[in-house]
């Protein structure tokens, strides 16, 4: 059954990768890569169980945390062309 899940995840990754490669907009690529990250987390977890050694979940955990960072960075770059500005912080509307 883990085999079926692995195959399903690999198919999903292939479709997602296709969307990341063809675009058409940057947001489509970013969406696809973000979704791809979630699928990688799942693949690493499921693969750990598939081989009977579910000890490698640390890596999936890193990705669950770091994938967010990359997506936010690209979004901020889209919006402001500058990563360091404090423009996400002020709050009046």
């Amino acid at each position: 059954m883990f085999v079926a899940a692995t195959i399903a995840l690999l198919i999903t990754m292939a479709l997602t990768l296709w969307r990341a490669l063809v675009g058409p907009t940057q947001f489509d690529r970013l969406l696809a890569v973000n979704s791809f990250g979630t699928k990688t987390v799942l693949l690493i977890a499921v693969y750990g169980f598939l081989t009977g050694r579910p000890d490698f979940l640390d890596i999936a955990l890193v990705y669950a945390l770091i994938n967010f960072l990359g997506t936010i960075a690209v979004l901020k770059f889209f919006e402001q062309d500058d990563l360091g500005s404090g423009q996400y912080q002020e709050d009046d509307y």
Binding site: F27, L30, L31, N34, T38, V41, A45, P54, L57, D58, A60, L61, A64, L65, N67, F68, T71, I72, L75
Partner: peptide, 20 residues
């Protein structure tokens, strides 16, 4: 660990979609 992964994904994945 799997529970932690779930917890983080539940927070970060919808947030990333919203921001996108």
């Amino acid at each position: 660990k799997m529970g932690l992964i779930l917890l983080f994904t539940l927070f970060t994945s919808p947030t990333a979609s919203h921001a996108l």
